[in-house]
Design a protein around this nucleic acid. Structure first.
Lengths: 125, 125
DNA sequence: ACATGTCTACGAAAATATTCGTAACAAAAT
DNA sequence: ATTTTGTTACGAATATTTTCGTAGACATGT
């Protein structure tokens, strides 16, 4: 059961995934770069997330250290499927084409994707 | 400025994109298959969407006929980018690999994607 | 010791999204 | 004519998410 994080929760998870275990202040510092965010707002969110089991925290020192309790890949899975279903009429390949079409993938990445496809085609026989 | 539709709004848009211009009843019929949904709930949502400019409606007959006022592809764009940024650390190719990895694409689709990639590689030179 | 700064806890306000009841009216059926 | 059915409008109740103020605890510097 992967809790579907809210938007703000996802923002926080993003930081934790990227930076590793962090304090509220550290997370808030980063979030503040993007958008004015009160310290206690971030704190409260992270407390809620802890309660929901989305993150765990080490309370051994006074400043608690939080880390994600759900894997990035699981959330990716969930959100990806939701998006495919919600906006791409269930067609994953539509989504893929659209994503590639935006030209954000480098040559090396394209090459890698091609390899994956060939591998998949092989399996599928 | 693409209004970012809420989840429920997206459900409704999905129907309108798929079925074309529809009445509230028609939309509600479809939504009800998925999930218990009161008629006036759907009505209200569609009224709000009309007000926001997400849909337009033909009021010439008593039963109004609604149609989308934003293109599916634009919403796909917006949501895709948001997802890449929020859950895939900004890496579109990560998302693509993940999407393909789920094995939901048919052989023909894979082939099509491969063609696209080759075309992109050509352009990029 | 005391002031100052930093931290957690937590209730509650504010903002946003969703659901629904009821009224008014028009159309259709009896 | 009267009743039944289907429709919009719309306020308001709920639910959910986000933001913030305030209190209390602890640590640090003076």
């Amino acid at each position: 059961m992967t809790h579907k994080p809210t938007e703000s929760e996802l923002d926080i998870l993003k930081v934790l995934w990227e930076k590793g275990p962090s304090t509220v202040r550290e997370v808030n510092e980063i979030l503040s770069q993007e958008k004015e965010t009160g310290y206690t707002t971030t704190l409260k969110l992270m407390q809620i997330m802890a309660q929901k089991g989305i993150v765990t925290r080490d309370e051994s020192s006074r400043t608690h250290v939080y880390k994600p309790a759900i894997e990035q890949i699981n959330v990716q899975h969930t959100l990806l499927n939701k998006l495919v279903d919600a906006a791409f009429s269930g067609s994953a390949s539509q989504l893929v084409m659209q994503a590639l079409g935006q030209g954000k993938a480098s040559k090396a990445e394209l090459e890698e994707i091609k390899k994956l496809i060939e591998q998949l085609e092989g399996e599928q026989k």
